[in-house]
Design a protein around this nucleic acid. Sequence first.
DNA 1: TATGAATGAGGTTTCATTCAT
DNA 2: AATGAATGAAACCTCATTCAT
Lengths: 208, 208, 208, 208
Amino acid sequence: MMGIKQRRRREKEHRRRQILDAARELLFSKGLNAISVNQIARQAELAVGTIYFYFRSKEEIFAVLQEEGLELLLNDVHQALEKGTDAKESLHLIAQAYLNFSRDQKNYFDVINYFLSAADVMFAPEIKQQIDQHGNRILMVVEQALRDGIQQGHFKAMDTRRHALLFWVILHGLVPFRKMQDTLLAGDDHLAMYGFAVDHFIDGLKAF
Amino acid sequence: MMGIKQRRRREKEHRRRQILDAARELLFSKGLNAISVNQIARQAELAVGTIYFYFRSKEEIFAVLQEEGLELLLNDVHQALEKGTDAKESLHLIAQAYLNFSRDQKNYFDVINYFLSAADVMFAPEIKQQIDQHGNRILMVVEQALRDGIQQGHFKAMDTRRHALLFWVILHGLVPFRKMQDTLLAGDDHLAMYGFAVDHFIDGLKAF
Amino acid sequence: MMGIKQRRRREKEHRRRQILDAARELLFSKGLNAISVNQIARQAELAVGTIYFYFRSKEEIFAVLQEEGLELLLNDVHQALEKGTDAKESLHLIAQAYLNFSRDQKNYFDVINYFLSAADVMFAPEIKQQIDQHGNRILMVVEQALRDGIQQGHFKAMDTRRHALLFWVILHGLVPFRKMQDTLLAGDDHLAMYGFAVDHFIDGLKAF
Amino acid sequence: MMGIKQRRRREKEHRRRQILDAARELLFSKGLNAISVNQIARQAELAVGTIYFYFRSKEEIFAVLQEEGLELLLNDVHQALEKGTDAKESLHLIAQAYLNFSRDQKNYFDVINYFLSAADVMFAPEIKQQIDQHGNRILMVVEQALRDGIQQGHFKAMDTRRHALLFWVILHGLVPFRKMQDTLLAGDDHLAMYGFAVDHFIDGLKAF
DNA sequence: TATGAATGAGGTTTCATTCAT
DNA sequence: AATGAATGAAACCTCATTCAT
């Protein structure tokens, strides 16, 4: 029977999960900055060495966690796309989903941000590829919305790739301003600002 | 006499500068992540304790450095504004200045980013106020360009505050994608993408 | 039939070689201190456990490597003996061969030294015996040169065993001083010092 | 009063000693290989960081310990020199002192050896200088004995520096063969061999 | 025979901050 | 106002070896 190898692989996969569970648990209870490999090991009830048997480095664990986060985010965004009855509404829903995610899944959002803004974190190209590919899939959802809009005659012809990226940058870039409600936003409501930015973006797309 | 107190204040200010000089020196020679308080002390030829007499924490030093950075950035942005012959050109020049700053003054840009994205860093409100005020002044420059455009009849009427913020978010949010030239940008040139984003933003402003 | 057992033994020998090949490869590419059993296993494309099936410990692997080194050294020394036209010249050539070996086969020399100076490494007596036997054969070559010299009438009668050992000790002990060219040697040339030591030793042997 | 600074310096020196005492204690109880900085800290009842406040690295501690060892050795050797009534006897006594030291102060001897044979250990040149200088002083004692012998008419004229080094190399190189009493020495008594080597060296010096 | 997952103590070093002086 | 010694947790990672399969 082929059973033995398969069981082995299953068990190995199970350990990986166990470690990721521990890391995620810590991510959620203590936040991104409070995670050490020793803590992960303790939480997972495994030896430190075991962690390093399954993951090359601490950051590789983070990378997987980020992929998870991106996956969840992709899900949310995808559902937003489908819930919308037309392209404009889809974009609005996507934006809303994004903002919600940044609030409700703050920890995942932190991890995503960690890799997006950290200048120095350098990965083996293969890992980097994989991460960016997840980001790519999110972009593709936005692109889909844009293409839908064009087809529906609501949006002008455009480079959907670039517009999708721009859309994402706007959404993502606005999130941290929530902290500055009282200073930079000068009392302006963050949510309102956010909505305004989306509207403005969509306005720029409409066919005449 | 008031002389004594004044001298005292002057000397105190001098020490602060001494410390900041050291920190800046290190920032530029080693980068943001390689700075420790002990190193700053050594560089400043002061004792560690002295550092803590003049600054509550290491991050407070960074905060001041960030203000410096924002000041420089403000300068660049301001010059861009003035160099432009009309509002559209001004915005383009501002964008260009921003991108250049992120490249040429990478270290200052890192510090700025550090506070913008770091979720947890919590300051005494007065420091936070002061930092945000610097950001504010940059926003005001952008606002000025927008107001100019309106006055010149090139731009439609608008909430300049919000549009200025949006403009900044776009510029700022696009910078890190330089790293992803080969993945998320799918070979698209980062500079081109950046220019596109600016163009698109400006397009959305024009009066009909 | 004896065939099966023989095949078994052959295969076993083959595995051992496979492991030693891997270890040697690493010894030469990374140096003595950078070798871990896991690395050896990876290099040999075997499981770690397998390594431990064929060798009791990591040091046992090194021990075999040392034997190899001693074998090579023996070869060099032996050739030096034969190349010499008389005993004095032979000794000079041996000394030169030794010094060359310490430079050109630095890695093997390191392993040899490792066991010679490491105080604590304790082996099963049989391994120790075997290692020392290799050293013994080198000594015997030197002894041969000495005996030749006596027979040729160049050297006085002597305890060849002790003199051979003394010769070796001098050669071996001088090697590390290469590092101290500028300090302990006080600028004296290491090679010159080495030559001097050999000359002095030979001088002490001559018949009157 | 100047007292304060002096007291500070005294206390600092005291801490250094405290750390060295702990390190030495461990060196003697567990041997060279079993010393970790954490252990030193525990033994010294200090925090790990404190160790690093006083010493740049673990090896710097070893270096000081080695200097201590060399100092003791120098002492023994010096006394041997003075106890001898003539140069020949002095050399014999020095040799004996050396062998005794290698036995009685095995741990110090190990440290000395550690730096003498370790290929990779690299120091700041200043430390290296200081270490070698200690070695130098021992050499100078031997040289003194040689010069005495020349003056007394027992030894021929010679390069005392080189001969002293050679003498040391012989003594030092023979020590580890104590372990090989039953193999390489082929049953020959180590002490006898050692004595023989010294005799032979001295024989080579005599004036005719 | 051969596997390879698991161990876990151990390694060295850094660092922001405090506090007695 | 200034010093600088002291903290000690925390960081990440390695490695020889074992053992159940």
